[in-house]
């Protein structure tokens, strides 16, 4: 088990190296660079910059250097824990990403917990009360949940909140806390705002997870080991929770790994619509502006989180399922 984790951890730098090359290639791929798109934006608004300033910027960021030189510059920075300067904002990327990343991760975790806390019990109920009225209600809600795009749900809920209660539910903070430093009051303010985006982001995942849980559990419920447990006189709910639920959840654990990054990227449109101080809109803007070090850093962090997420779910799975644990021992 320990060896298995170590193996995976040793693989981490190699994976990150491969991903960093791919990421850098991708953000470099569009024609032109930051300056061409920057100048185009300026030109379309009627102003212009003098050539000397352009040359200075080109030199500072090494935009005239070949690909590998630029890549090595970026890597050197990363080695020192420096994500580089944003071309557009002229501020360290670390600073720009930091708080947004924290909020993004927080929101993703909230949505994740929401999804599991709702989906697993509901899935268990549906499977153990197959074809009951509530099972049908869940099924209907599931279809709606899966079929409604989350930005649409966001728009509808925002409209309902605004038209019937006169409150605006955008953002993650009230105005007075937006720029404030972290404090308990700010955190409470965050909690008061985060639940709506949490539900909106989590609802489709909840619906899907509930369906999968229901199907998995139905598969397990009449397995011989359940019949045997019933035959030795175990009460029904204790039995269901101890045996088939455990086996039905195991395969779901392996989905945690790709669930987290998916929540990140899936939140882009919702974040834009709801004006959330998330990382999604920032990534979009960085890509459009060809702010390559900013975009590259964000994408690399995504990759890192994905790898970590997969590692965590692998460890969880090995911990839960002795068959996998012993195979890797």
């Amino acid at each position: 088990m320990l060896r298995f984790i170590l193996q995976r951890l040793l693989l981490l730098p190699l994976l990150l190296f491969v991903f960093s090359v791919v990421v850098f290639l991708l953000v470099q791929a569009p024609p032109g660079d930051f300056l061409t798109s920057y100048l185009a934006t300026l030109a379309s608004s009627g102003s212009s910059v003098d050539q000397a300033q352009v040359d200075a910027l080109t030199k500072q960021f090494g935009l005239d250097q070949p690909f590998h030189v630029q890549y090595i510059r970026w890597m050197e920075g990363l080695g020192r824990g420096d994500l580089g300067l944003s071309l557009e904002y002229q501020r360290p990327n670390m600073e720009l990403i930091g708080e947004r990343l924290l909020l993004t991760v927080l929101l993703a975790l909230f949505a994740f917990v929401f999804t599991w806390v709702i989906a697993i019990p509901a899935g268990i109920y549906s499977a153990t009360h197959q074809n009951s009225i509530l099972d049908y209600v869940f099924t209907l809600l599931n279809y709606i949940g899966v079929a409604t795009p989350n930005f649409m749900l966001a728009l509808i809920l925002m409209w309902v909140a605004f038209s019937s209660f006169g409150v605006s539910v955008t953002g993650l903070f009230s105005r007075e806390y937006e720029q404030a430093p972290w404090s308990l009051a700010r955190f409470i303010d965050l909690l008061q705002h985060i639940w709506l985006p949490m539900i909106i982001l989590g609802i489709a995942g909840t619906a899907r997870l509930m369906r999968v849980m229901r199907a998995n559990l139905l598969d397990e419920l009449n397995k011989p080991y359940v019949v045997a447990a019933r035959a030795r006189g175990l009460s029904e709910w204790r039995l269901v929770l101890k045996y088939p639920v455990r086996l039905a959840i195991n395969p779901l654990v392996s989905t945690i790994g790709w669930y987290l990054p998916q929540l990140f990227s899936g939140s882009l449109i919702v974040a834009t619509v709801m004006n959330l101080p998330n990382i999604g809109p920032m990534l979009l803007r960085a890509l459009v502006q060809q702010d390559m070090y900013l975009a590259g850093s964000i994408l690399l962090i995504y990759c890192f989180l994905t790898i970590i997420g997969t590692l965590i779910s692998d460890i969880l799975l090995a911990w839960l399922d002795p068959r996998i644990r012993m195979e890797n021992a």
Binding site: K223, P224, A228, G233, L247, D321, P322
Partner: peptide, 19 residues
């Protein structure tokens, strides 16, 4: 069940939980 009347189920291979 189990105390007065006990069962040896039909499929001994899968009658124990694997986990």
């Amino acid at each position: 069940r189990g105390a007065q009347i006990a069962l040896i189920p039909q499929e001994p291979m899968s009658s124990f939980s694997p986990v």
